[in-house]
Design a protein around this nucleic acid. Sequence first.
DNA 1: TCCCCGTTGATAT
DNA 2: TCAACGGGGA
Length: 659
Amino acid sequence: MWTDFCTVVAIASNCICSIQSLALCLPHSCLCFHIRYPSRHFLRHYRYLELSISSTTFEVQKKRKESQNPQTPKLHFENRWCSNQMGIKDLLRFMKPYIVPIHIKKYAGKRVGIDAYSWLHKGAYSCSMEICLNSDSDKKWRYLDYCMHRINLLRHYKIVPVVVFDGGNVPCKSVTEQERHRRREANRELAMEKLKEGNVGAASELFQRAVNVTPTVANQLIKLLREQNIEFVVAPYEADAQLAYLSSLGTQNGGIAAVITEDSDLIAYGCKATIFKMDRYGKGEEMMLDKIFESEGCTPSFRNFDKELLTGMCVLAGCDFLPSVPGIGIAKAYALVSKYRNLERVLSVLKLEKKKQMPEDYFKLFRQAMAVFQHAQIYDGETRKLRHMKPLPLELLQSLDEEIDFLGPDMPPSIAVSIAEGRLNPITMEAFNYFSSEECRQDLKQIENNERLPRTEAVEVSGKDSCFMVFVGKDRERHIPDKRIKPVVGDKNSKEELALEKLITPLNVQRTNEDKTNLDYKSIKIPDNNPFKRRKVDEWHSDLTQSVDEEVSVTSEDECEELSCETPDKLLLKSSRKRKLNEALSEQMDNVTELISGITQEEDLVLLEQTPESQKSVSSKTSSVIGRKRVVGKENKRKSNCNNSGIPKNSILNFFSRV
DNA sequence: TCCCCGTTGATAT
DNA sequence: TCAACGGGGA
């Protein structure tokens, strides 16, 4: 409503207004916005747009910066209720006296939480166009390299990374989320226009603003983490809340010593130690909560503050869940809280001072925002259930009229577990395919060939007293670490299958284009991008042995390529020769082939045993061994690929190649 | 005088 | 995305 109103004002008054303000306010449907939304270059050179309206069309004239009249009346657009603010406004600047530069090695031997989306977003900048266009280029996976590079950096310093992903959207943040989504979409459309015009530079800048890190994108990282046995959890809602909760736990209970993030919200959540702006070498800025409350003679002083007052100050200054009252910034918020030391009193004073500018329901919204920071829904890894960070006191419940859905709706434990373990998309509630990328590629090939393919689907089964998830599809048991998630065995008349009424994902669902290309991450193996050039001799040695193995793998790859590079005629001739040879030998070699198939199955089993769950260490030395195993595994899989392209699986050629 | 808030250039990816 | 700067309202 507000944005529509602003647009009407802008057009009706035939005014000249700041183009950035205009961009903030114009609604999605406004043609003028789409056509004239400026590129950064445009913004630098043409500061104002003059809007005039003639019967049916808009005319937009550019005014050069140099010729602008400083007296030009500007419409002041406030779009406060569509906050694009990330975290608490100006909090880090305000807290500067308490922020100290550190190196991540300080946390050697400790568990450190990571806000995964902050890294995913940064990583996505380098390949934003590829992600937006869903390109087939390998560049699309750069964001994974970025994240794994930093995770490897932590592991290098003997830090145990605990990666935390965002889950579903919290209802009270939905306005902010919608606004962000709308801007991304607008930028994407403009980027496409620029691309059509051939202006790749402008398009790429716009794609950077359009890139959206979806749970599907994040799930690619989850797959890598799972393969490397790196601890991760998908929060039911806000990752910040989950991280703050983990930071409140002792190390023995799965707690973390610090959080690496870019979001100042962690301070409002009461996180004990937060590291901001960690760079590629491990340098960052740290803020310890205890030091804030303890330090003397430092301004601003928080000696008389407690966690609640600090959170209150953050909410007053404006956060993702509630924009600030006009005229109240971080400094005013601090002054008020410091003076009255009671949030209710601060609100009463504020109401007297800012009567006109304060929304009627500000008190309620303030309490809700406070409740999000103090009582957010988090996943309890021990009980494997959702719970509140801090239990909701009765008084608070009463003051909120017992409406607590703004914290995010409750969900059955089985769904919470599936989300936390990265098997269920927390937004669409569709099951992720969590096979390895190689298997997915095989599946996709089969889909492309219109072959019938058993799929894995998450299905909610409701009983009288229980609700649990089942997974239907191939290799079920192997991929289900959660014992409560029951595999459905292929008996179509089984009771379970009859009960599959509430399908979370329809069985005939097609994989989206996004899913399809995302499954193709060819280097799902450990990205070898450790930034440290000086390494020990034994590391060089292990690298050398690894490189020998890689050469083996490259050779087999070359062989495959050799096959694929043949002309179709030659290939046909080759395969027909092989087939004839097979047919001739197959009859005589029945017993042998049975033996081979036995070997194949056994080998497959060996491969299965080398699933990531079996890896017990994430140290660099072990990972090189794991890497070696995986290379061998990869080689085997490649061989099976080659088989698919021409040689029957049980053929004698297979046997000889094995020997 | 204080400090909110819009603008701008720099920076990283 | 962030820090710095300056205008302008309180």
